[in-house]
Amino acid sequence: MMDSVVDLASRVMTEADLPPPDTKRWVMRRKAEVVAGVRCGLISLEEACRRYTLSVEEFLSWQRLIDSHGVRGLRATRLQDYRQGEKVTLAE
């Protein structure tokens, strides 16, 4: 793993910018830091999921919310608002 990489905001991002592995409370900023870390190659998706006990689906949902609604889309109180617009299909 690289010691530092340049993130999308053109600033150097290091492991110190990532949330601690024992994070229990996932606020918008921490979720966004993990997504940015994976996107810029600081940490792999697999390592992020292992380190933070996330499912791939959970991580990908954070990434989709950022892409669709910006970092504010990660607010737990807003998830229901954003999901109301999504079509849900159940497998038979």
Rank of each mutant, 00 (worst) to 15 (best):
I66S: 04
E46G: 09
K31N: 05
T89Y: 13
I43P: 15
T77V: 06
K31Q: 06
S61P: 05
V88G: 12
D7N: 15
R51Y: 11
W26L: 11
D81W: 01
D22Y: 03
K31E: 03
E46T: 01
G70C: 05
R29T: 02
C49M: 09
D3P: 01
A32V: 02
T77L: 13
D22K: 14
S55D: 02
M13Y: 10
L54Y: 04
S61K: 14
T89W: 11
L42M: 11
C49E: 10
R29V: 01
T53K: 04
D22F: 03
Y82P: 06
C40S: 10
E92Y: 01
G37E: 13
Y52E: 12
S4Y: 04
A32Y: 00
R83E: 15
M13L: 04
W26H: 09
W62D: 12
L18M: 14
T14W: 00
R75H: 14
R50T: 08
Q80L: 04
T77D: 14
R39P: 09
V38M: 11
A9L: 11
G37T: 08
P21S: 14
E58F: 04
R50M: 05
R51I: 02
L8F: 03
L90E: 09
V38P: 08
V71F: 00
R29A: 14
S55R: 04
I43A: 11
E46P: 00
E92Q: 07
R39W: 01
E86F: 03
M2L: 14
V27S: 07
S68E: 13
R51T: 11
R39Q: 12
Q80I: 05
D22E: 12
L90D: 12
D67Q: 05
Y82E: 10
L90A: 10
D7I: 06
E46D: 04
A36E: 12
E46L: 00
D7W: 05
G85A: 11
P19N: 08
A32F: 01
E86G: 10
R25C: 03
L90M: 15
G70N: 09
W26V: 05
H69D: 11
V27I: 03
K87N: 02
D81T: 00
D3W: 03
K31Y: 01
G37D: 14
V56R: 15
D22H: 10
R51L: 14
A36T: 02
R72I: 00
V12T: 02
R83A: 11
R30E: 09
I66A: 08
P21V: 03
V88Y: 06
D81R: 09
I66D: 15
Q63P: 03
S44V: 04
K87Y: 02
F59G: 08
V88H: 09
E15A: 14
E15M: 06
Y82N: 10
D22L: 11
L60I: 05
R39V: 04
Y82L: 15
L60K: 14
A76L: 12
S68R: 07
L54P: 08
D17K: 09
D22A: 12
W62R: 13
A36W: 03
L60Q: 14
L79E: 04
D67T: 07
L74Y: 05
K31T: 02
E58D: 06
P20S: 14
V71E: 15
A9V: 02
